[in-house]
Design a protein around this nucleic acid. Structure first.
Lengths: 163, 163
DNA sequence: CATATAATGAAAATGATTTTCAATATCAAC
DNA sequence: GTTGATATTGAAAATCATTTTCATTATATG
């Protein structure tokens, strides 16, 4: 999962945002979990590591499989419980798409839009908040109070086009 | 469900798109189903009518309940089967959101973005395709071939803010 | 109106997720 | 270090949305 920055009105000068390494990410997440009063266990570490290392979005079943290689006794229930906590802390986010809504990916700081490969689950993240004015206009027209928005693009990544 | 039109770069002159009446919509959908070789039955009519009349997005369970008032013997299975066909014909679309991905709403012609009330499920549809250039730029940067995008806003409609 | 077959509802099956529960592991206090 | 309160565990059962199976019924066409 790479991360790019875009300017909504100017696509000519994109900025690549460098990301934490998987090891840094994992360490940070575990520390954060502990700070919140959660205990660090083998099961939790296995799931956190699997997610931090992931280059693509993963389902609970994917994480169960990958996590079991790291911690033999891992149960699927612990995968769900860890995902729940990581999501609550804003460290991972669910990836919704036409092909399903059961995958998770590590969240970038701030608000992110996603470009999702429908074949392999690879996710590119984009930062930006250029929809603010648009959102305000929409609120005025509709009478809604808007809390959140999703801007997502779906397609095939370069690798999956080639394959 | 109302429908508005917007211009991505100019939110000052929105255009309200008038929608079909529920009766027109239902008649049109049933005719379309029949043209495609599907038979018209009481169960099918009940589900189609319920969806055509809906002011908000509905789940299969909602449709089962509403449909049963119209056709006593309606089974939940027929709700799913009818949704499947309507979706295949592009007459209804699934509404995905932070609160779940199990609701359906009648689709407008063409490509639509949605503004969804997280409390009551009310959906406002917006037309527009001003993301074309943006999409092209994104493809160039990422190497992806983009097939589809979602632009969705979530919040509370005027009624639910008041309540 | 006969008839081929699409569509039906009920029940069972499936797949993802959650709950329950007794056993175990973590971490803070000693 | 040992202890002890309790957070966390995995397994099994429960739940929820959805799909499949199947014998029966209804539709539309000839």
């Amino acid at each position: 999962m790479a991360a790019l920055a875009y300017n909504f009105l100017d696509m000519t000068h994109p900025q690549i945002v460098t990301e934490q390494s998987a090891a840094e990410k994992s360490r940070h997440w575990l520390k954060y979990l502990q700070q919140r009063g959660y205990r660090l266990t083998g099961s939790r570490r296995a799931v956190v590591d699997a997610l931090a290392e992931a280059e693509r979005s993963l389902t609970a079943a994917d994480l169960y499989e990958i996590g079991r290689a790291k911690h033999k006794g891992l149960g699927l229930v612990s995968v769900y419980r860890t995902l729940e906590k990581l999501e609550e802390l804003g460290l991972v986010q669910r990836v919704h798409g036409p092909g399903g809504c059961h995958a998770y990916i590590s969240a970038q700081d701030g608000h992110n839009h996603m470009l999702v490969c429908e074949n392999c689950g690879r996710v590119e993240m984009f930062e930006g908040d250029d929809l603010k004015d648009f959102t305000r206009g929409l609120e005025k027209q509709s009478g809604f109070r808007i809390h959140e928005h999703w801007l997502q693009f779906f397609g095939l990544c370069a690798d999956c086009q080639a394959a």
